[in-house]
């Protein structure tokens, strides 16, 4: 029983990171119908800024602020330079554009920073562990769970209580009507990218805290996971992305824990099969939006 509870805690922590990432993808997708595969490079950027800030001996809180601000800025620039010119183009065009942005950034990281991983020496205090009865919870894991909860609560407040947030929700329903109401499309889209950059920055820092280094290709795998999570949850649905993230984390941890030894190398295949099974019963994802996307 203890072991099960421990694994549940593990699943919560992993799922939380997936949820943050999937949410970042979903925020942008819900507005302009783009799956931004360069989301991972936003995470990588957060990692590099953190590494350089710590190497420059900046105070830890300032390093965190810079590391989260950088991907926000990069996301907005990305939108302005790469995605605005193709806004409204077919899904394929958008997807390929995001692949191109991602590939260009990775090659730039490899050739102008370093192909080798750059260490990110996190304070030793973060390596500690909290014991709750028989359960162990790493400090990074707990921060990860707490941050996810905080980000989700903050985003919910933003979307429900502010004009910009309402405009974003409305834009997700029907962009054309929002523009007819006199809201500037560019502003709404830029806000969506800024939020996705913020989510990527936070998730990137949590990711880097676990691994202790940042390398140019770091962003690919988490975005793949986030993509899967967003699909299970129902593309374009924000709550769905969160649910999908937690479900994927739960499936992965539980399979790793309870699959027979001989099956373990196939864990990811089994996990993906379960995802396909979910989609067979709910082709639109768990919490798909009822409206059809207009863009």
């Amino acid at each position: 029983m203890d072991i099960f509870l421990q694994q549940l805690l593990n699943a919560l922590s992993l799922g939380g990171t997936y949820a943050l990432l999937a949410l970042g993808l979903a925020v942008v997708f819900s507005i302009i119908g783009l799956i931004n595969f360069a989301h991972g490079e936003l995470m990588t950027t957060a990692g590099y800024v953190m590494a350089f800030a710590l190497a420059a001996a900046l105070p830890f809180p300032l390093a965190i602020i810079l590391a989260v601000a950088a991907p926000v800025l990069l996301a907005v620039v990305m939108e302005r330079v790469a995605f605005r010119p193709v806004r409204g183009a077919s899904g394929t065009t958008l997807l390929l554009t995001s692949f191109a942005v991602s590939a260009i950034l990775r090659v730039l990281f490899q050739n102008f920073i370093s192909a080798r991983p750059v260490p990110v020496p996190m304070p030793a205090a973060l390596s500690g562990v909290i014991n709750i009865g028989p359960l162990h919870l790493g400090i990074i894991q707990s921060i990860s769970i707490a941050t996810t909860a905080l980000m989700l609560a903050g985003l919910t407040l933003f979307l429900n209580r502010t004009v910009a947030g309402r405009a974003m929700r409305a834009a997700a329903e029907d962009f054309a009507i929002v523009r007819l109401m006199g809201l500037r499309a560019n502003g709404v889209v830029a806000t969506a990218f800024a939020i996705s950059g913020l989510l990527a920055g936070v998730a990137g820092l949590l990711w880097v805290a676990q691994r202790g280094s940042v390398d140019p290709l770091m962003g690919f795998l988490p975005v793949l996971k986030a993509f899967i999570a967003a699909i299970i949850g129902g593309l374009g649905s924000l709550t769905g992305a969160v649910a999908g993230g937690f479900l994927l984390g739960f499936i992965e941890v539980m399979l790793q824990a309870w699959l027979p030894e001989a099956w373990l190398p196939y864990r990811d295949a089994v996990a993906i099969m379960l995802v396909i099974a979910v989609l067979l019963f709910r082709p639109q994802g768990l919490l798909a939006r009822k409206t059809v996307l207009k863009l």
């Binding site: 991983p117 390596s127 500690g128 562990v129 162990h136 790493g138 400090i139 990074i140 894991q141 676990q210 691994r211 202790g212 280094s213 390398d215 770091m218």
Partner: peptide, 15 residues
Amino acid sequence: EPDFPALMRQLRGAG
């Protein structure tokens, strides 16, 4: 890396 640092962190974290 990135697996080894994550492993050590989690292994030592679990006591």
